[in-house]
Amino acid sequence: MLEYNVTARRIDHHGSEAGTKGARIVLDTDMQGRDDAFNPAELLLASLAACMLKGTERVLPMLDFNLRGMDISLHARRQDSPPKIIRIDYEITVDTDESDQRLDLLHRNLQKYGTIYNTLTAATELVGTIRRKE
């Protein structure tokens, strides 16, 4: 079983930071918001995107999949009472010459084996597509 550790601390009323290993990330915890940091909902979306990108790196050699690049766009909807994310939509755009069937295979692998993906799909509606870059 894998385990993960992150520490976080308040810097001041404008923000905080989180760290793990040798990495640090600035957190938007200012009540007015900050343009130079991710807020908690944006961190959640970034975590999902990172999960899919890392999953892609894991399955590329197994699938012998030819990939030149990948972009992921995500959008979340939040309800106010009780506050929670009720739906996440994503679109994966892949720069590849692989067939549509192989694109679908990649997508299924990302859905089936993604830790963050599986955690979120158990908690909220997660809807996504994969398409070839034009």
Results as ranks from 00 to 15, higher is better:
residue 1 M to A: 14
residue 4 Y to A: 05
residue 5 N to W: 03
residue 5 N to L: 03
residue 11 I to W: 11
residue 12 D to M: 04
residue 12 D to F: 08
residue 12 D to S: 09
residue 12 D to L: 05
residue 13 H to V: 09
residue 14 H to P: 02
residue 15 G to A: 14
residue 16 S to D: 04
residue 17 E to P: 01
residue 17 E to F: 02
residue 17 E to Q: 05
residue 19 G to Q: 11
residue 19 G to A: 07
residue 19 G to K: 13
residue 19 G to R: 12
residue 20 T to G: 01
residue 21 K to H: 12
residue 22 G to H: 01
residue 23 A to C: 04
residue 25 I to D: 08
residue 26 V to E: 12
residue 27 L to Y: 00
residue 27 L to W: 00
residue 29 T to K: 03
residue 32 Q to G: 06
residue 33 G to C: 09
residue 35 D to N: 10
residue 36 D to H: 08
residue 39 N to D: 14
residue 40 P to F: 11
residue 42 E to N: 00
residue 42 E to P: 01
residue 43 L to A: 00
residue 43 L to Q: 01
residue 45 L to M: 11
residue 45 L to K: 07
residue 47 S to E: 02
residue 49 A to H: 03
residue 50 A to S: 10
residue 50 A to V: 11
residue 52 M to R: 07
residue 52 M to V: 07
residue 53 L to V: 06
residue 54 K to N: 13
residue 55 G to N: 00
residue 56 T to M: 08
residue 57 E to Y: 12
residue 59 V to G: 01
residue 60 L to A: 02
residue 60 L to N: 07
residue 61 P to A: 00
residue 63 L to D: 06
residue 64 D to A: 06
residue 65 F to T: 03
residue 66 N to T: 08
residue 67 L to E: 14
residue 67 L to G: 01
residue 68 R to N: 15
residue 68 R to Y: 10
residue 69 G to Q: 05
residue 70 M to T: 07
residue 71 D to H: 04
residue 75 H to I: 12
residue 75 H to R: 11
residue 77 R to H: 10
residue 79 Q to F: 00
residue 79 Q to G: 05
residue 79 Q to L: 00
residue 80 D to T: 10
residue 81 S to L: 12
residue 82 P to S: 05
residue 85 I to V: 13
residue 85 I to T: 08
residue 85 I to D: 05
residue 87 R to A: 15
residue 88 I to A: 05
residue 89 D to W: 14
residue 89 D to T: 14
residue 90 Y to S: 01
residue 90 Y to T: 01
residue 91 E to I: 13
residue 92 I to Y: 05
residue 92 I to Q: 04
residue 93 T to H: 06
residue 94 V to S: 04
residue 95 D to M: 04
residue 96 T to S: 14
residue 98 E to W: 00
residue 99 S to E: 12
residue 100 D to K: 08
residue 102 R to D: 06
residue 103 L to T: 07
residue 104 D to P: 01
residue 105 L to F: 11
residue 105 L to G: 09
residue 107 H to F: 06
residue 107 H to T: 08
residue 107 H to I: 10
residue 108 R to N: 07
residue 109 N to G: 05
residue 110 L to N: 02
residue 112 K to L: 12
residue 112 K to W: 15
residue 113 Y to C: 04
residue 115 T to S: 09
residue 115 T to W: 11
residue 115 T to Y: 11
residue 120 L to H: 06
residue 121 T to H: 13
residue 121 T to A: 09
residue 122 A to Y: 09
residue 122 A to Q: 12
residue 124 T to S: 02
residue 124 T to M: 03
residue 126 L to Y: 09
residue 126 L to G: 07
residue 127 V to I: 15
residue 130 I to C: 05
residue 131 R to A: 15
residue 131 R to K: 14
residue 131 R to N: 15
residue 133 K to W: 12
residue 133 K to R: 14
